[in-house]
Computed example of a mutant assay.
Amino acid sequence: MDKQKLRSIMKEKRQALSPKTFSLYNQNILSKVLSHPRIQEAKIIGCYVSLPGEVDTFNMIEKLLTEKRICVPKVIGNEMEFYEIHSFNDLQEGCFHVLEPFNCVKICPQEIDCMLVPLLAYDQDNYRVGYGKGYYDRYFQKKFQGYKIGLAYSFQYVDHIDYDEFDQPLNEIIHEVS
């Protein structure tokens, strides 16, 4: 299946979740992330700021900020950079209506110990389908050496994703199923 069709199908599946199910799935994922050894060991964690329908990162960021240094992405042209935040007050609406950091310190890719990554679909080899702009794949090629964790719902799994030489697999996927 081509990636564009897969994106469409997964967006529809996400929209079909009831608010109660969505909340329960997000609580399970949050618990797994907070107890994950790579997260507990990390000094600096990169994390996306979620949009409606994505695995919710607002509670995650709020809890992680109490113990860790957190950086979030900002799109600049065709590239994405990560900036350290100290609270949600460091964010304002930016590219694609995503909350992005402003007046924050840029964090180099090699400084980030662990990255929490959004996705629309994933496969058994931890390849992901994102939104199609390639921001994360390009960012991971910039001397990023940290551990890459995709955050997903189990229904986003597919048997195989056709990938090219630019696609970067994740180290692991965390979803709501035990």
Score class of each variant (00 low, 15 high):
Gln27Val: 09
Ser50Cys: 03
Tyr25Arg: 09
Gln40Tyr: 05
Glu79Ala: 11
Gly46Lys: 00
Lys11Thr: 09
Tyr147Met: 05
Pro101Val: 04
Ile70Asp: 00
Asn126Glu: 04
Lys11Pro: 04
Ser50Lys: 01
Tyr136Asp: 03
Glu100Gln: 14
Cys108Arg: 09
Glu12Asp: 15
Val117Trp: 01
Tyr139Asp: 11
Pro118Ser: 04
Lys32Phe: 14
Gln141Gly: 12
Val55Gly: 06
Leu99Glu: 03
Gly94Ala: 10
Glu54Val: 05
Lys148Pro: 00
Asp167Phe: 14
Asn89Gln: 08
Met1Thr: 09
Glu41Thr: 11
Ile70Glu: 00
Leu119Tyr: 01
Phe88Trp: 14
Arg7Ile: 15
Leu64Tyr: 11
Val33Gly: 03
Val105Ile: 14
Asp56Gly: 03
Lys74Ala: 04
Ser23Met: 06
Ala42Tyr: 01
Glu81Tyr: 15
Val177Thr: 12
Ile174Phe: 07
Glu79Lys: 15
Lys5Phe: 05
Gln156Phe: 03
Val33Asn: 00
Ile45Trp: 05
Ile85Val: 06
Gln124Asp: 13
Phe166Lys: 07
Asp113Met: 05
Lys13Pro: 02
Asn126His: 15
Leu30Phe: 05
Gly77Ile: 04
Lys106Glu: 14
Phe166Val: 10
Ile39Val: 12
Gln168Trp: 11
Leu170Gln: 03
Lys43Asp: 14
Gln110Arg: 08
Asp56Tyr: 06
Pro118Lys: 06
Asp164Ser: 12
Lys20His: 12
Ile29Val: 11
Glu84Pro: 05
Asn78Glu: 15
Ser31Leu: 07
Ala42Asp: 00
Tyr48Gln: 10
Glu41Ser: 15
Val177Trp: 10
Ile29Phe: 05
Met1Val: 10
His97Asp: 05
Val129Asn: 02
Glu67Leu: 06
Asp123Asn: 03
Gly53Thr: 03
Tyr131His: 14
His160Phe: 13
Arg138Gln: 14
Lys3Gly: 10
Thr66Glu: 07
Lys20Leu: 13
Pro19Glu: 08
Lys148Asn: 01
Gly132Cys: 13
Ile76Asp: 08
Asp2Tyr: 06
Pro19Arg: 04
Ile161Ala: 06
Arg38Tyr: 07
Glu62Tyr: 13
Lys11Asp: 09
Val177Phe: 05
Ile44Leu: 02
His36Ile: 13
Glu111Lys: 12
Leu91Ile: 04
Gln156Met: 13
Lys43Leu: 11
Gln27Tyr: 08
Ile149Asn: 00
Ser87Trp: 11
Phe22Cys: 01
His36Lys: 10
Ile107Trp: 07
Arg38Ala: 11
Cys108Glu: 15
Leu65Trp: 00
Phe82Thr: 02
Tyr122Pro: 01
Ala121His: 01
Pro101Gln: 08
Ile173Cys: 08
